[in-house]
Write a protein that binds this DNA or RNA. Structure first.
Lengths: 80, 80
DNA sequence: ACTATATGTATTATAAGTTACACATTAGGA
DNA sequence: TCCTAATGTGTAACTTATAATACATATAGT
């Protein structure tokens, strides 16, 4: 319970990169040494990974962090 | 005890950006809504902030995450 | 000397990231 | 149909990020 919302909403296009490379969540997870649950959580939405993990993802996908992750202003805290 | 090392070492040039803007740790902390302790920890070294916080920093400093943070392979011994 | 600012360090407490499971479902191929 | 890979969902345990606070110290200006 109690999920404090961060100031910025982090969205990502990880599934797009995965689709381009045609790799499964499990493959990606093993490649960057996390569990599949972590990949699911990231792709699933409101999830704020560590910067180090973001770097590992960007490095593996041969791109930069901003190409994978975008930060949006959180226009309202209580719109749900 | 038991400090699992991340796969990548995250370094940063936050103090350089601060120096350029001539702002104190406390000013920066307030601007991005963290405590000064968090700024000290980040500048101090082996510290892995959240991606969301990295975005807040980059946004405030009018730059991108990679200009502030760099990921190095962890070459030091006893890896794995 | 005094004062205020800036930084480093430390401790405790809470929030959140991540793992390691398990179970379910869906889509495809043989 | 059966089998398998891929994905979604959930939860408990563990680790780490961050907050809140206090204390120390150095430095610059008065």
């Amino acid at each position: 319970m109690s999920k404090l919302e961060p100031k910025l909403k982090i969205t990502n296009r990880l599934h797009v990169f995965r689709a381009e490379k045609r790799i499964s969540q499990e493959e990606l997870a093993k490649a960057i040494d996390v569990t599949r649950g972590t990949i699911v959580a990231i792709e699933g939405g409101d999830y704020n990974p560590s910067l180090e993990l973001a770097f590992r993802l960007a490095r593996y996908l041969n791109t930069d962090i901003h190409s994978i992750f975008q930060a949006e202003e959180r226009t309202d805290g209580k719109n749900k």
